[in-house]
Design a protein around this nucleic acid. Sequence first.
DNA 1: GTTCTATCCATAGATGACCTATGGATAGAA
DNA 2: TTCTATCCATAGGTCATCTATGGATAGAAC
Lengths: 109, 109
Amino acid sequence: MTKKSDLMPGTLDMMILKTLTRGPQHGYGIALSIKRASDEVLTVEEGSLYPALQRLLLQSWVKAEWRSTETNRRARYYTLTAAGRRQLGVEQSQFETMIAAIGRVMQDA
Amino acid sequence: MTKKSDLMPGTLDMMILKTLTRGPQHGYGIALSIKRASDEVLTVEEGSLYPALQRLLLQSWVKAEWRSTETNRRARYYTLTAAGRRQLGVEQSQFETMIAAIGRVMQDA
DNA sequence: GTTCTATCCATAGATGACCTATGGATAGAA
DNA sequence: TTCTATCCATAGGTCATCTATGGATAGAAC
């Protein structure tokens, strides 16, 4: 089993895509969003996050542009594409299927 | 995301331990149990199963002995140990925590 | 009687996601 | 001016799982 602060493998891309449905964000902001939404249970390391964003860019599930933050710093803002939104749907339903199956295996009977 | 027939990484050991709470079983039987319990959604490949069983043996979470099956074939029967039962509890609660956290990230809000 | 399928064990090597470690840079607070 | 938080990104390692392979036997099918 994974350690407490680790992620569940295979769920990071899905969570990033989901986070971006709430609007464009830069990498650091995505990491904070996930951390806060999960009540500090999930911590996305930068060494996981940026490679993941590169993967998503390559697939054209997100696009990126350099902009300025409210605090006047340069940052790369990521936006969900239409394909990314479709992909999110696919990953969500696969995830649900998987979790439901594991639930059946794990139930007492 | 993982493919449909794949496992969710990090959940195999937990499912094996859970399966063994229903009594000793040989490797092949464990794989079938998981497949059936999950309504054929989860397929444990032999290349995943036997290394997993070696891990569990090393940790003394299961023990093994050679016996004969009902159909007269030699097979290695795996039994859950007390430590294995404790470990199952740990993994289950970590899993629940993780799934709950992912659920919060994935909920529309 | 032999071929095929299901049952059974196990390892080697590849893949791929994630983590650790590292490096760089700036804004604003102390 | 030093420290912390904010921001980006890559290289290298780890580890779980999969693919591919190899071996062996029981019983059914033909």
